[in-house]
Each structure stands twice: as structure tokens, then as C-alpha cells.
Design a protein around this nucleic acid. Structure first.
Lengths: 186, 186
DNA sequence: TTCTAATGTAATTCT
DNA sequence: AGAATTACATTAGT
């Protein structure tokens, strides 16, 4: 990892964000600033209809009769979109609090999803009871599974491999030894 | 994350590992202790031929004329396999050092691959020049891309989404503002 | 509110 | 040098 500091001071960030916020609010034109235009990737793979990213939780466009593929494929970097991820955004926060008073839970949820600092995070994975149990069984034996164990587990449990990372359980080496003995009885 | 400590003391670990090591070395029987037998997953999805995990770098079985699918599917947790990942394993470490003196690089590599604590790590991804450039362009604009940006990028650059995580470049908020202005000229 | 998945970040290991 | 991992703190979803 680079040793350079990646964080500006909080106050400077906050000031900049306020400037940007007030500026963006006066503009409603849709921004055509896509990843392709930054990367110059349009010309590649133009004939091939590329597969959609696996994102079953996305429902922004699905219920509106719009072109879903258009929404999923193209407008990743847009000025209204999830361009950054910060903790202080006073004006929007105020509006959310106001919103929570007057609207239903469903309305609040859909409103929250429209705010940039509520978007951009992977939706929380709700592990099933079976998945939790299986992961705990494995982590009890081995708290640091290698890539092959992780992928095997992910495949067996129908999870993404990168969801299997954190030790879910504190294991001792004695349980590990117990498993070894069970496997190779003396 | 659980608040319980996940690490036993180094000395205890070392002692346990030495016990296990000397024990395992006397046994060569192949272990049938698979993930399925731990999880009790065999009975589920038995008829359906499940897809192989995406693991193009695996070459353990490919050159030996064995059944590759068998190797990729089944034997994830085996007693000779990558059951743990520790930093202190004095006996093996000594043997590796001895090995480095007397054998060629190729022989050393194949020997290292047989040691459990050299296995289990995802092979280093060699990003292409284009990928690096694209990632830097995006991170210059937005050092904290959301899930949709990450997936879009992963898809466009033919990478796994979870390879796109760390800020590759230190960006300032001023460049962000500059992009906003470029997008919405006042 | 509690629990915990997702994320940010630094330190470390290994290629 | 830099990608993969571990550890730990923080944020936020249910």
C-alpha cells in the first residue's frame, strides 16, 4: 500500500463538500460524464453485448419501466451519483432527519437511496442459518482459510468469495489438533 | 466483528504446531476429511453438476493427467493441504532455508508449494498497463468508489470486483471539484 | 438497541 | 515495488 496519506483534513473536506453541494443543487442537467469517457474504453468490445454486472439488489430503474440495461451499464460516474463517500454532509443529513418525521418507512427508504451518501455501499449480506453454521464450522478448524478453501466454501454456500474473509469465530489450536487426530487416528 | 481475541499466544501456537507437525509427518495416509463431511452438504444439490470455481492459476493437477474436476471440486480441507496460515513454523522454515542452498529455483518453487504455509494465498494479480491507467484515472476523480463503480470497473477491465478496493492514488477534493465544474459548467 | 456486514486504514507478508 | 493478507477501528443495515 502506498505510504502517502489519503485523507485531507476533515474541515477542508467539509468546506469543499459544502461548496460542491450548493453548486450541484442549482443544476439538474444530467451528466454524461461516464467511465467510458474517462477511460476511453468505448471503442473496445463495441460489438459484443457485455454481460450485466451481478447486482440483484439494484431496483432504482426496475420499477419505472425504463431501460434497465441502460441504467446498469452506462452511468456509473455521474454528478448526481455516488461519487464519494463521506461522513459529513450537513445539508443532506438535515433533510433526511426531516424526512424521517413525515414519511412512511417505505418512503424513507426510497428517499435514502436517492442520497449519494446512502448509496455506494454493498448491501448488507444476510447470511442464512446454514451459511453461518457452515462458516463457523470451517473457521473453528481454520481461522485463516486459503484462497482455495474460500473459493470452495463460496461455491458450496453460493456466496461470493470475497464475502468470506473475516474470522467469524475465535478458534483455538486445540480444536485444530482434535480435527487432525480425528482425521489421522494414531 | 466479535470482540473476543482471535489469536492465541505465539508460544502456545508454536508448541501446538510442533506437536501437530511431528504427528502428521509420521502419517502419509490421504485424508478424506472434506468440507462436505464437515458441513454435511453432500446430500444437497447432488444431481446438479455444479460449476467449477474460477481458479485459472491452479496447476497442481493439470499437468498430471489426473481428473482435474476431481481436484478442484473435492479435497479442500485435507490434512496435507492449506489448513492454516501462520508465521511461525520453525521446522519447516529451517528446511526451506536448507532447501534454498542446495536446489535450483524451479525445485525450490515446487518445494515451497508443497509447504502448507506457502499455499493458500491468492496469486499476485499482474495488472496490465491499461488497467493501472484506468484505475488511476478513476481513483483520481473518486478515491472511494461505490459498489456500482467498482463493479462497473471490474467488468470493463475484466477484473474481479474485490480486486478493486484500495485507493491507488492520493486524490484531493479540488480535483473532484474540478471534475464537477467540467461536467456542469457554470 | 444490539449485533454484525461493509468499509477505512495501517502493518505485515510474500511475489 | 506492489499485491495479498491480517488486524483493528469505524460506519451503518436489520
Amino acid at each position: 500500500m502506498a505510504s502517502t496519506s489519503l485523507c485531507a483534513s476533515d474541515t477542508a473536506v467539509s468546506q469543499n463538500l459544502q461548496k460542491v453541494s450548493s453548486f450541484v443543487e442549482t443544476k439538474t442537467t444530467h451528466c454524461s460524464f461516464s467511465i467510458e469517457s474517462i477511460l476511453g474504453l468505448e471503442q473496445k468490445k463495441d460489438g459484443i453485448p457485455v454481460a450485466k454486472p451481478h447486482r440483484p439488489w439494484m431496483d432504482t430503474c426496475n420499477n419505472l419501466g425504463e431501460d434497465t440495461s441502460q441504467c446498469l451499464q452506462t452511468p456509473v460516474i455521474s454528478c448526481e451519483g455516488p461519487l464519494f463517500h463521506v461522513n459529513s454532509y450537513p445539508m443532506l443529513e438535515e433533510r433526511v432527519l426531516k424526512c424521517e418525521k413525515y414519511f412512511s418507512a417505505t418512503e424513507r427508504l426510497s428517499y435514502k437511496r436517492e442520497l449519494s451518501w446512502y448509496r455506494g455501499r454493498r448491501p448488507r449480506t444476510a447470511f442464512t442459518r446454514n451459511q453461518i453454521e457452515a462458516l463457523e464450522n470451517v473457521f473453528r478448524v481454520n481461522s485463516y482459510p486459503g484462497i482455495d478453501v474460500r473459493e470452495e466454501l463460496a461455491h458450496k454456500l453460493e456466496l461470493d468469495e470475497d464475502r468470506i474473509q473475516s474470522p467469524l469465530l475465535s478458534g483455538t489450536d486445540m480444536t485444530f489438533i482434535a480435527v487432525i487426530l480425528q482425521c489421522h487416528p494414531p
